[in-house]
């Protein structure tokens, strides 16, 4: 686990909505092919941090971001926003099936990126659905509207969709908030397998999920980064900051 290469380098990141500071001088690195968890109570700035990483922050009105985020050593601002988001996938807290068929949902991103070949698209669709553990449930109804699927299925569809461009980084924002424990377990297994190929950033408010999945964990509170460390240390008595300790032990938040 030592001497890993850096995938994302965040330095001195500060974000404000109007006058309210939501991220304060965040500096941290995320390594290649690891699952990196970000924990912390609600409104600690975790989601905003993710939005800054894939520059969805561009679409938020009244936000101002300073500091820098580097992907593979290159500033994310040097690239066009939509191209960046093709490399950094994102799964939102609530499942959103786009109002089109299941097949179209998964094929949407490759198509927008310029893939026309129907056979290749078919391949991508099947592959992604398999990887999101959804293939067996929907393989006979790829033509139904995605909005007619159940919540858990839609969430896995969202994951399948975000895999369709083979992103280098996959951000998941509290993906288990709207789904049942069984589906959560299944997606967790999927993530375990996916990290062979990609860097996964997992924002979660379930401490146990971070303990189960993540190599390293960051603790955030009120827009500040409290501490980053190996999960194995952080969760087993190695937390340096008392607030991290208290949060992990479930005493606040």
């Amino acid at each position: 686990m030592e001497n890993q290469t850096k995938k994302i380098e965040i330095s001195d990141l500060t974000a404000r909505y109007a006058t309210q500071v939501v991220l304060k001088n965040i500096t941290m690195d995320i390594y290649k092919k690891e699952i990196f968890a970000i924990i912390g109570p609600a409104s600690a700035g975790k989601s905003t941090l993710l939005k800054c990483i894939n520059r969805m922050s561009d679409f938020i009105r009244n936000i101002s971001v300073s500091g820098s985020i580097k992907l593979d050593g290159q500033d994310t601002r040097s690239e066009d926003g939509s191209s960046l988001r093709r490399r950094v996938g994102m799964v939102s807290p609530l499942p959103v099936g786009l109002p089109m068929t299941v097949w179209d949902n998964v094929a949407f991103a490759p198509r927008m990126a310029g893939v026309r070949d129907k056979r290749k698209l078919n391949e991508i669709v099947e592959d992604c659905l398999r990887n999101a553990a959804l293939w067996d449930e929907v393989k006979d109804r790829l033509g139904t509207l995605a909005t007619r699927l159940s919540g858990g299925q839609q969430q896995r569809l969202t994951i399948a969709r975000s895999l369709s461009l083979r992103p280098e980084v996959l951000c998941l924002d509290e993906f288990s908030i709207a789904i049942d424990p069984v589906t959560t377990m299944r997606i967790e297994e999927v993530l375990e397998r996916l990290k062979v190929n990609m860097t996964i950033i997992l924002v979660t408010n379930i401490v146990q999920q971070a303990r189960r999945l993540a190599e390293r964990t960051a603790m955030m509170l009120d827009g500040q980064l409290i501490e980053v460390g190996y999960t194995s240390e952080l969760f087993y008595g190695g937390a340096k900051d008392p607030r991290t300790k208290e949060y992990i032990e479930g005493r606040f938040g």
Partner: peptide
Amino acid sequence: MQAVDAKALPALQTVELSSFHK
């Protein structure tokens, strides 16, 4: 519980457009 598909995701092959197209 259904067994997770054994087939892993193929190695990264980002759909890359030529810089001209971009």
